Simulated assay, not measured.
Amino acid sequence: INCQEAILHISNGSTEREYCIVHNHSWTPLSQTLDTATQYPLMNMTSTVLCNSTGISPDVVKGKALVVTRGDCDFSQKALVAQSLGATALLIASNTSLITPSANDSEYAKVHIPLALMRYRDFLEAQQVFGERMLVKLYAPPHSKIDPSIALILLISIVTVALGGYWSGACE
Rank of each mutant, 00 (worst) to 15 (best):
N12F: 09
N12W: 02
G13Q: 05
S14T: 06
S14M: 07
S14G: 00
E16L: 15
R17Q: 13
E18P: 02
Y19N: 04
C20T: 00
I21F: 10
N24Q: 13
N24F: 05
W27H: 09
S31V: 00
S31I: 00
T33F: 04
L34H: 03
L34Y: 04
A37K: 07
Q39L: 15
Q39Y: 13
Q39D: 14
L42K: 11
M43S: 07
T46P: 07
S47I: 14
S47V: 14
T48Q: 06
V49D: 10
V49S: 14
L50R: 00
N52C: 12
S53T: 06
S53R: 04
I56L: 06
D59S: 14
V60M: 08
G63N: 10
A65R: 09
L66P: 01
L66S: 01
V68F: 04
V68R: 05
T69S: 11
G71F: 04
G71C: 08
D72M: 07
D72E: 08
D74T: 09
F75P: 01
Q77C: 05
Q77E: 02
A79C: 11
L80F: 09
A82T: 01
A82K: 04
Q83A: 10
S84D: 11
S84G: 11
A87C: 01
A87S: 02
A87W: 02
L90Q: 01
I92C: 05
I92Y: 09
A93L: 05
A93D: 04
A93E: 08
T96M: 14
T96A: 14
T96N: 15
L98K: 10
L98P: 09
L98I: 02
T100S: 15
P101W: 15
P101C: 11
N104I: 09
S106V: 15
E107F: 15
K110V: 01
K110T: 01
V111K: 13
I113Q: 09
P114M: 03
P114L: 02
L115T: 07
A116Y: 08
A116T: 13
A116E: 08
L117C: 12
M118L: 06
M118V: 00
Y120F: 10
Y120R: 12
R121Y: 12
R121I: 08
E125K: 13
A126Y: 04
A126C: 06
A126E: 12
Q128K: 13
F130H: 08
F130C: 06
F130R: 11
M134D: 07
M134T: 08
L135H: 12
V136N: 00
K137Q: 11
K137C: 06
K137P: 09
K137L: 08
K137W: 00
Y139S: 10
Y139I: 06
A140C: 05
